[in-house]
């Protein structure tokens, strides 16, 4: 049953031009950064050879691309997540799902996974971009894998948050703005915290992504992401169920 929802969500994504435009823009921005870093690398390559333990291609070119990708995904998520539930409510199609023999949990998980399939496609494109560097040299695959995992978990957290906000309203635009606000807030927490503020650092999404970005697969960060995703999915399910109970 989850499969039915995922399929429908993907169909809805790709029949609208929005998904295609977003994928194109995402790829355009990241390729731009990628090429910029590649240029920079070629310029300083001779100087790098003189250092005893020089940073590799992966560190100089790929890491900034992934770091930027996280920010771009932050901007893109609200546009995709806004309509997930808010639009169903607006056009009264939520009734169709609620009267069908499918549980609210399946609906929410299906919608979440549908969005994740879309994000996985975007992330595959980014990984493909990095792997194209193999044409000119060696890559640190460990670093690329940790970055990919980090980006997937970050995208999943954004999606879960966006899905929850979308379940609160019947207006997709409001859901988008609120999601963007919330995610920007989480990002800012990361920017304003000093090194000594442990508590704020611990709740910053991008601080956790940074660990993955540096090649560090930290169980604390994984636990944080998983808890973040689970919390918002459960909140969404509870909210939809509460609507049935309270009206």
């Amino acid at each position: 049953m989850i499969g039915t929802i995922i399929r429908k969500e993907l169909k809805m994504f790709f029949t609208s031009p929005l998904a295609w435009i977003l994928l194109t823009l995402l790829q355009l921005i990241l390729t731009w950064i990628f090429l910029g870093r590649l240029d920079g690398f070629l310029e300083i390559q001779s100087q790098l050879l003189q250092i005893a333990n020089p940073p590799g291609v992966t560190e100089i070119i790929t890491l900034p691309v992934f770091a930027m990708a996280a920010i771009v995904l932050l901007m893109v998520t609200p546009l995709l997540s806004m309509r997930l539930i808010a639009e169903e409510r607006r056009y009264h199609t939520l009734t169709l799902l609620m009267s069908a023999p499918i549980s609210i949990t399946d609906i929410v998980i299906g919608k979440f996974l549908g969005l994740m399939v879309f994000f996985s496609m975007a992330i595959i494109l980014i990984v493909g971009l990095s792997i194209s560097l193999l044409l000119g040299g060696d890559l640190d695959f460990g670093l690329i894998i940790s970055n990919t995992i980090g980006l997937l978990l970050t995208a999943a957290s954004f999606s879960a948050f966006g899905l929850y906000i979308s379940s609160l309203t019947a207006q997709p635009a409001i859901a988008a703005i609120a999601t963007l606000g919330g995610l920007l807030g989480l990002w800012l927490v990361d920017l304003v915290t000093g090194e000594n503020n442990q508590w704020l650092q611990a709740i910053s999404l991008l601080r956790h992504f940074e660990r993955f970005n540096q090649g560090l697969i930290d169980t604390f960060s994984i636990a944080y992401f998983v808890l973040f995703i689970a919390t918002f999915l459960i909140l969404t399910i509870r909210h939809l169920d509460g609507e049935r109970l309270r009206g």
């Binding site: 809805m12 029949t15 056009y91 009264h92 009734t95 009267s99 023999p101 549980s103």
Partner: peptide, 21 residues
């Protein structure tokens, strides 16, 4: 609810249609 809903068909006041399908 799930087993019971298998036997139900519902047309609400406003038909639940996806306009772009």
């Amino acid at each position: 609810p799930q087993e019971a809903k298998m036997h139900l068909g519902f047309l609400p006041e406003i038909p639940p249609l996806y306009q772009d399908m």
